[in-house]
Design a protein around this nucleic acid. Structure first.
Lengths: 147, 147
DNA sequence: TTCACTGCAAAGTCTTTGCACATAT
DNA sequence: ATATGTGCAAAGACTTTGCAGTGAA
């Protein structure tokens, strides 16, 4: 149903730019799709479930490539590694800085803000790159556990 | 005019918790205030203008401490190092992913969004921790320079 | 005097680079 | 056949940790 998920789609996109289709590239893209949003390390582990010899270097390089091709995107959710997700699935991340949980909400929530920023500051907001930090429902209702 | 900027304020805050006042701590806090938002490395260089022997390790430790004391905050603006700023100065960062420029806008812009997130998702948005990514006015009007 | 704090060096993450071999076309 | 892509190892950027000596109270 989704052309982008057909195996041949990636091959085509690559060939249009004189690039080569490899198992590693398909596996990395599949892993990103399956994991929703994940760090390079998590993606690498997922890929290694199928192909244990794939190196994390290749994962980094492939993620860069897929991002340049517009197939995936990354966001910096917090301290550590960035999180990659498929580009087609537009969403905004809600990151709880208490428990680390990540939720997703539709981008449309940002439309009013995007309009204001464009009109008043000339800034074109890219909602799909966005992480909003705060406290999630569970942590708000839970007693503050420590420091 | 601002009690927090009086030298004695930091000493008091520290003493209340059994911590000690040191020149390094005052210098780091001053540097964060002066620089607005800056990476640990930039803060370290600023401190070293005055006290060249201060080590970057101390800067990292002091920034952690000041953050725990609620005096500074950090945000992840992009790939590299985080950016620290004084907590009192609440603002939202607009990060241009084309040229890397960082602007600040008042947090109140996020009030409507914050209300929606709270009402519909139970998520308490922390606006002061926030970086919005997009394209700035200059880059929008400039011709796309390369790839 | 005492214990928090600092500087230095070393180790720890996360990511990139260089290079020879493998492989898609 | 050929040049892109990969794996491995080493280096790079950013940050943390261990420890002995320094200095605030």
């Amino acid at each position: 149903m989704d052309t982008a998920s057909a195996p041949k789609a990636l091959r085509k996109t690559l060939h249009e730019r004189g690039l080569r289709m490899t198992p590693q590239r398909q596996l990395v893209l599949d892993a990103v799709r399956e994991l929703g949003h994940a760090t390079p390390e998590q993606i690498c582990q997922r890929v290694q479930d199928t192909a244990p010899t794939v190196n994390i270097t290749t994962v980094y390089r492939t993620l860069d490539l897929l991002e340049r091709l517009g197939l995936v995107r990354h966001t910096h959710l917090g301290h550590g590694a960035p999180s990659y997700s498929v580009h087609a699935h537009e969403h905004v991340h809600l990151v709880c800085h208490r428990c680390g949980r990540v939720d997703e909400v539709p981008c449309e929530l940002l439309s009013p803000l995007g309009g204001t920023l464009r009109d008043e500051y000339g800034f074109e907001l890219d909602a799909s790159h966005l992480a909003l930090s705060g406290t999630c429902r569970e942590c708000l209702s839970a007693p503050k556990e420590s420091e």
